[in-house]
Design a protein around this nucleic acid. Structure first.
Length: 424
RNA sequence: GGAGAGGUCGCAUAGUGGUCUAGUGCGGCGGUUUGCUAAAUCGCUAUACGGGUAAAACCGUAUCGAGGGUUCGAAUCCCUCCCUCUCCGCCA
């Protein structure tokens, strides 16, 4: 959530953010009014408590008893007020960066493209046909066993999943590679290897809420009996890895690369992408999450996008980098960048990566802070991004590398992991 | 799932109703001493909100896992929940 003081001092900016992001309208007067009420109540309670502490010290039973009752009233009102305020403020989206285009998806800005959509001397097939013909994707049996939007990955496609995981973890753990990526991208970030993480996929509902990722609830698989939610991304459990902590500045940047299954109900996507494995209830994803000082966070995001591009270039997949518009980026975003990869079977670019700069929007409620070298304490900035959405990357490899006979050439950088160079 | 022991300042630990303004050690920061390092020694050492200030200092309140209760007064007593550890059971 945003800082309430920031909201008070920058009403017009916040109002514009709400408008531009087209989120639920919020009555900012009410927010400020609640804030003032809380402040006044708090001040009164402090005064009563001061008197009460004095009475206790003097063992003045009569005054103590009276003041205790007085304090009791405030102690009921205050938490309610606090709760109401946080609920309201949590609905206010992050403020978009200056370079974020204002509008819906249609004004998303293509920053650059890499590679050329390949011309095939034959009609390229969609991955669902390739997958079925090669017996490496089985959606039919999955539908019987689990339902729509599930699939079995089999044989060499299952192997390729682990090859992608291997490539990602190797690259993000290699300081030399990271240094050259950062230098090529013109960033001067401090290079540290990403710490590999296999996070939990079930988490407490309350923590998901603090990550600003619980809503819309319809998108989440919820286990009410246990008060747990299934993650929709490794981000959800890696992001809170430092909640309620104050990190020393010299520990930053902290960088993680995590692998997990992601679960999504796809409640609002009925009828969309129903064929193949583009949009599944369950998919594997490698995600990265970094914690940096505020003034470095945008450069960090540029570094992250450079890493994403490096990996896609290793796979020789044509892609475009897109700066997401206010309407297309999520509420917690300050700046959102997507990579869309060319999918010949669908004759279009499809989203395979996203990179979200959250500034302090998540860290404020997670209570993840940094103690600067001068002793000041402030919320860290967080970046979160896809390394590989494995299903979608597999689609891109399958469709881009297909040959006339229906076989698929394995990208050079994955051959070592798979022990072969073609799927047939 | 059963039985037991616990959760205190960055870490370790003391603290069984007012003397806790939470002690001590380690770590960290600063000073003195010092050719350098080490050692010694002195001081400081959290967060939030409010007041105060040019900025500090400083003052008030809250925080001893979380929330409630008893009491004039709770780290300490009671209740609920969460978590950790040990043993048993079950289990990949």
């Amino acid at each position: 959530m945003l800082d309430i003081k920031f909201i008070r001092e920058n009403r017009d900016i916040v109002e514009k953010a709400i408008r531009d992001k087209k989120t639920e309208p919020i009555d900012l007067d009410k927010v400020i009014q609640l804030y003032e009420e809380r402040k006044a109540l708090r001040t009164k309670l402090d005064e009563v408590n001061a008197a009460r502490n004095k009475a206790a010290k003097e063992q003045n039973h009569a005054d103590g008893k009276r003041l205790k009752e007085e304090a009791g009233e405030f102690e009921i009102k205050l938490p309610n007020l606090e709760k109401e305020l946080v609920t309201l403020v949590s609905k206010i989206p992050n403020v978009p960066s200056a370079d974020t285009p204002v509008g819906d998806e249609s004004v998303n800005k293509i920053i650059r493209t890499w590679g050329e959509p390949k011309k095939f001397p034959f009609e390229p097939k969609a991955h669902w046909d390739l997958g079925k013909d090669l017996d490496i994707i089985d959606s039919e049996k999955a539908a019987e066993v689990s339902g729509a939007r599930f699939a079995y990955l089999k044989g060499d496609l299952a192997l390729m999943q682990f090859a992608l995981i291997g490539l990602a973890f190797k690259t993000l753990g290699d300081v030399e590679t990271l240094s050259s990526i950062a230098a090529d991208a013109g960033t001067s970030v401090t290079i540290t290897p990403f710490v590999p993480v296999v996070p939990p996929v079930l988490m407490r509902t309350a923590v998901m809420n603090r990550m600003a990722r619980l809503h819309p609830m319809d998108e989440r698989y919820v286990f009410e009996k246990d008060d747990l939610v299934l993650v929709g991304s490794a981000e959800h459990t890696i992001g809170p890895l430092h909640m309620d902590e104050i990190l020393e500045e010299k520990r930053l940047p902290i960088r993680y690369v995590g692998y997990s299954t992601a679960f999504r109900r796809e409640a609002g996507a009925a009828g969309k992408d129903t064929r193949g494995i583009l949009r599944q209830h369950q998919f594997e994803k490698i995600e990265l999450e970094t914690f940096v000082v505020p003034e470095k966070s945008m450069e960090e995001q540029n570094f992250i996008v450079a890493i994403q591009e490096h990996l896609m270039q290793s796979l020789k997949l044509p892609y475009q980098v897109v700066l997401k518009s206010t309407g297309d980026q999520g509420a917690p975003n300050h700046r959102g960048i997507d990579i869309e990869t060319w999918m010949p079977g669908q004759n279009t670019y499809r989203e395979t990566h996203t990179s979200d700069l959250m500034t302090s929007y998540q860290s404020r409620r997670l209570n993840t802070r940094v103690r600067r070298t001068d002793g000041k304490v402030e919320n860290v900035h967080m970046n979160d991004a896809t390394v590989f959405a494995i299903g979608r990357t597999l689609i891109a490899v399958m469709e881009n590398n297909q040959q006339k006979d229906g076989s698929i050439v394995i990208p050079t950088c994955l051959q070592g992991y798979m022990g072969k160079d073609v799927i047939k």
